[in-house]
Nucleic acid binder design. Structure first.
Length: 231
DNA sequence: TCATTAAAAGTTT
DNA sequence: AAACTTTTAATGA
């Protein structure tokens, strides 16, 4: 038993079709936990015991190459499940989950994944849908990496970030969590210097407004044009 | 076109 | 003050 509010889950895709009593059951089985920023919730290769739902905050999914370079695979926005090794029939986590800012999570033991999938219609299909979407995104990025120039890759990455993790502000759309130029370079396979120079140039052109760890896209349309510019 | 190296300036804690 | 982040410039693949 815990005192989590049922409204936490009612609007989230994996649980949208559940009746109130079912949501109560799911919540009572959940373990809530708070994480400070820049902590790892689990590490690539760890035995996967639980799966997680992000209630608040933002998660970076990170993979480390054999050379020790880290690559940011994708970001998790509030309301999404992560660490769903069970869905892929894996017994270790395929990547590391780092908190980008302060995060609030619920988690359940993996054994419950199969129970939820069996008991609650819509749970499995919704999850396979998000899994498919993430795979599609990662696929697109592979193509981008191979075919596009750095400027376009960074532009595309910013656009994805404001689409998935954006928040409207007075002067444009802000990326809703702290992000450094180093982070952006880890997402685009370039260096922090190049990202820094690009952001400075775009700031002069009025496309973005960035300060330390904060990026606001002020002119998404121009960024789109840039991201589509020919080779 | 972009990475690397170095150096300096700015920010946060 | 120390640690971290960002900018700028020079050099070379």
């Amino acid at each position: 038993m815990n005192n989590l509010d049922e409204s936490l889950l009612t609007n989230l895709p994996p649980f949208r079709n559940l009746a109130k009593a079912q949501i109560r059951t799911v919540l009572d089985l959940a373990t809530p936990k708070r994480f400070n920023r820049e902590l790892s919730i689990f590490i690539e290769g760890d035995p996967a015991g639980r799966f997680y739902l992000l209630l608040d905050g933002h998660i970076r999914v990170v993979r480390t190459t054999p050379n020790g370079d880290q690559i940011i695979v994708l970001h998790i926005a509030p309301g999404q499940l992560f660490g769903i090794a069970a869905a892929m029939h894996r017994d270790t986590y395929p990547a590391t989950a780092m908190t980008a800012d302060e995060c609030l999570t619920l988690s359940w033991p993996n054994a419950l994944w199969h129970k939820f999938a069996a008991d609650y219609p819509g749970f499995a299909t919704e999850n396979y849908k998000t899994l498919g979407e993430r795979m599609g995104e990662v696929n697109n990025r592979v193509v981008e990496m191979a075919t596009q120039h750095v400027e376009q890759r960074v532009a595309n990455t910013l656009l994805r970030l404001i689409n998935q993790n954006g928040k409207k502000v007075e002067n444009g759309i802000a990326i809703d969590f702290p992000i450094t130029r180093q982070n952006l370079s880890d997402m685009t396979g370039t260096t922090l210097h190049t990202v820094s120079r690009l952001l400075s140039a775009w700031q002069k052109g009025g496309l973005v407004a960035s300060t330390r760890k904060r990026v606001v896209v002020t002119d998404p349309h121009k960024l789109v044009l840039l991201s589509e510019a020919g080779i």
